[in-house]
């Protein structure tokens, strides 16, 4: 039924939100475990960090960041509608707004993360 029904923006927003949420949940399981290594096996933790820094790791992080950012922005959209129900009349516009912010902020961040994978310099250097 989920695939047969031609829902609109609201249904897509919900489906993406849910898929992103489950993905983030899975990552969090991993992430808490890897940070646990800091205290029990620092060497292994360093190896995990190398994976994060590898090209494949960077693709994963970009996807993770995208999931996180979409889930956060759409979550904000949901909260706005929950507490000000009249805004539901503009739920589509709110969703388009989510995507505008997603890409304006998300693309530079994705570049920052992915640049090393292509042997390029990162666009931003905050000197940290």
């Amino acid at each position: 039924m989920l695939l047969r029904y031609r829902g609109g923006e609201g249904m897509l927003a919900w489906a993406f939100h849910r898929i992103a949420g489950v993905a983030i949940w899975a990552f969090i399981l991993l992430h808490v475990l890897d940070i646990w290594l800091v205290s029990v096996n620092p060497e292994l933790y360093e190896e995990v960090l190398d994976i994060y820094a590898s090209p494949i790791g960077r693709v994963g992080e970009t996807l993770l960041g995208a999931a996180l950012f979409y889930h956060a922005l759409n979550g904000l959209r949901i909260i706005i509608m929950d507490f000000w129900p009249a805004t539901t009349r503009y739920h589509k516009q709110l969703w388009y707004g989510v995507w505008v912010i997603f890409f304006i902020i998300g693309l530079p961040v994705a570049w920052q993360i992915m640049a090393p994978a292509f042997g390029m310099a990162q666009p931003f250097d905050f000197g940290l």
Binding site: A53, G57, V109, Q112, Q122
Partner: peptide, 9 residues
């Protein structure tokens, strides 16, 4: 990921 990078962590 932005201010720092996994490669230097």
């Amino acid at each position: 990921h932005l201010l720092s990078d996994p490669s230097i962590q």
